[in-house]
Design a protein around this nucleic acid. Structure first.
Length: 309
DNA sequence: TGCAGTGTTGCTTC
DNA sequence: CGAAGCAACACTGC
């Protein structure tokens, strides 16, 4: 479930390995009737165009916008990837494999650079870019929710229309507590947890970081935004500034499927205070509370009923 | 065995 | 218009 720190880690990885390389081929096994007529590579007609436009193009740079990966290539084009739930990008060496070899090494699909592309059991690799150094950049995506498309007129049109639907970037310099307050108050009658996850309000926060931020700020996820005090907006702002960079420094959160481009896990999942800690003792000093799990807007929310009010 | 849970986003329904 | 719920999909765990 890549959120801001996971997407940021991925983008940094892509920039590291893709420097000076070109895309020499593109392959996919995504295909869905549900996506016919949409600008998504799951539509085979669209993929044909996508492949033509990418092939032979030099990599320029990768960027992160909220939870989106943007890969600028030659020809004023930008590859747009949203990893949704289980998507992650891997970089490595393609090699063919047999069933028996796969059985011996099946852990490798996320554990090493060896990408077991042609095994009938490796059902998770959906998209492969062959690169000019003979290696590959691939998208692994168990649940097939990820979306990939091509944006024309790099930096204009499409990218701008994407950006217009997104709230401010919480790690950019201009993101003050005042801006956080103004943004959140656009959803004044919502519970704070729901508002924090709204990408139009703030970019990049998902369920894990939403719970962790509210735990640090000592605010209940059920609190209405209109009842959050100025002091508390400052605490939320501080928690965002602490937690997101801390997770980036740990290489992101691999509680679920997320891996970096080398297939390695991040470490943030080892430091959760609230997310998926149901039944555990609250880790705050002199708080004897137990972490509870409730449902807010059809999503799980984890918090300490004792110290988060 | 069967079904709820997992979380992102956009679409449909009321 | 806004809130609620579902769909896209596959796997895990109780």
């Amino acid at each position: 479930m890549p959120e801001l720190p996971e997407v940021e880690t991925t983008v940094r990885g892509i920039n590291k390995v893709m420097d000076k390389l070109s895309i020499t081929d593109v392959w996919t096994n995504y295909s869905s009737e549900k996506y016919l007529g949409k600008n998504c590579i799951k539509n085979p007609e669209y993929f044909k165009i996508f492949k033509e436009e990418c092939t032979g193009m030099k990599f320029i740079q990768a960027r992160r916008m909220a939870k989106n990966i943007l890969i600028d290539i030659e020809g004023r084009k930008t590859i747009h990837i949203h990893m949704k739930m289980t998507g992650h990008i891997l970089y490595g060496q393609y090699r063919k494999t047999t069933k028996s070899e796969y059985e011996k090494t099946k852990e490798l699909w996320t554990a090493t650079n060896d990408i077991l592309l042609e095994s009938p059991f490796n059902r998770f690799i959906r998209l492969v870019f062959t690169l000019s150094n003979g290696k590959h950049l691939v998208l692994s995506d168990m649940r097939k929710f990820a979306q990939v498309s091509l944006i024309s007129n790099q930096g204009l049109d499409g990218v701008i229309s994407l950006a217009q639907k997104l709230g401010p970037e919480p790690l950019e310099k201009g993101f003050t507590a005042g801006i956080l307050k103004t943004q959140l108050q656009k959803r004044s009658r919502w519970m704070i947890k729901k508002a924090l996850l709204d990408q139009e309000i703030i970019s990049g926060i998902g369920n894990i970081y939403g719970d962790e931020i509210l735990w640090q700020a000592k605010i209940s996820p059920e609190r209405m935004v209109k009842d959050v005090t100025l002091k508390e907006f400052l605490l939320i702002h501080k928690a965002i500034q602490d937690i997101l960079p801390k997770s980036i420094a740990m290489g992101g959160d691999s509680m679920s499927d997320y891996r970096n481009i080398y297939g390695e896990k991040g470490k943030f999942q080892n430091f959760h205070k609230a997310y998926r800690q149901t039944g555990k003792l609250c880790q705050r000093k002199s708080c004897a509370g137990i972490i509870k799990r409730i449902t807010i807007a059809q999503r799980s929310a984890h918090f300490c009923q004792t110290c988060q009010n």
